[in-house]
Design a protein around this nucleic acid. Structure first.
Length: 303
DNA sequence: CGTCCAGGTCTAC
DNA sequence: GGTAGACCTGGACGC
């Protein structure tokens, strides 16, 4: 395994980054082509490079984020691409120190300041939106099957045989029967194909949703206009992919999970839950998510 | 074997 | 603007 890059494991404000908490930051982070290996404390994934793809293992080595090539070779240019893509996925350009300043005053979330809250994102917004559509109105096993089928059948193969997430062009070129019979996406099939087609044709630019100049409300409106994307999916993409943390992800998992953790007797209204996180302002959705997922990573894991 | 529903969304009132 | 019903799929249940 050859070393591709080592990147400082720090946020843009110098704040710490908890590696394990980042690779397990949300469910979509562990969908193909990603593989989370918590026992070896690493994330394996397959990323596109010019003219192909490469599989890499990402791990924490002291204060650095280590990116290693699993198979094959890379030139300097592809190595640079892999390093940049990894840094993007780990959101190393993000400054979470303002959120940590708020969390330190909250006994329920003061633990976050140790480096939690960095949501692992896909190399593209397109990939995160497509995967999020695959989470709607289905069990998690269904989400896994749909995304695995997309990757296995349409993704570019890397040395070693693993595949990257398919390009919009590849997904646009697949016909309806592929989504129906191979992906088993059901009524989501047309949504996925329409999304991919619009991106491939250039009539839709999802990547510009990362533009910090674009207001949250505008990003939300554009997402909501996409086929198969409703209020849940908007909040989910904004939280996990766009670094826009104001909206709470309210769905059939988060609602009851919050109720249990908060010791509520019956079902709580969404507005009630939202009110309880209002003090976090633009970080309300992130605070809510971290409150729910605190138990996802054992706190005693060795560094 | 029928019903329900899972990290919802869309359409039609 | 708010709310029923339909909607693919495939496990988990109850009968």
């Amino acid at each position: 395994m050859t070393l591709v890059a080592e990147l400082p494991l720090r946020g843009a404000g110098g704040e710490p980054v908890d590696f394990a908490r980042t690779i397990l930051s949300h469910g979509v982070a562990e969908l193909p082509p990603n593989r989370v290996a918590l026992e070896s404390r690493s994330l394996e994934t397959t990323l596109p490079v010019a003219g192909g793809a490469r599989s890499v293992r990402v791990s924490a080595a002291g204060a650095m984020l280590r990116v290693e090539l699993m198979r094959g070779r890379v030139g300097a240019r592809a190595a640079q691409t892999l390093a940049a893509t990894t840094a993007h996925m780990f959101r190393l350009d993000e400054d979470l120190s303002a959120f940590y300043a708020l969390a330190r005053d909250d006994r329920a979330l003061d633990w976050c300041a140790g480096g939690a809250g960095r949501m692992l994102r896909a190399p593209t917004v397109f990939e995160d939106v497509a995967k999020t559509i695959c989470t709607t109105n289905t069990a998690w096993s269904g989400t896994r099957k749909m995304t695995a089928a997309l990757v296995d059948n349409l993704g570019v193969a890397a040395p070693g045989g693993r595949r990257a997430f398919p390009s919009p062009e590849a997904m646009a070129a697949a016909d309806e029967s592929f989504y129906r019979d191979i992906v088993r996406a059901g009524y989501r099939g047309p949504y996925l194909k329409q999304l991919a087609t619009a991106v491939a044709e250039g009539t839709l630019d999802l990547e510009e949703l990362n533009d910090p100049e674009l207001p949250d409300d505008e990003a939300a409106a554009r997402l909501l206009a996409l086929p198969g994307v409703g209020p849940y999916a908007v909040a989910h993409v904004m939280l996990t992919s766009l670094g826009r943390y104001s909206r709470l992800v309210l769905d059939s998992w988060t609602r009851p999970t919050y109720g249990k953790l908060a010791g509520a007797r019956g079902a709580l209204k969404d507005a009630t839950i939202e009110r309880r996180f209002r003090r976090y302002r633009e970080y309300a959705g992130l605070a809510f998510w971290l409150y729910l997922t605190r138990s996802w990573v054992d706190e005693g894991l060795p560094v």
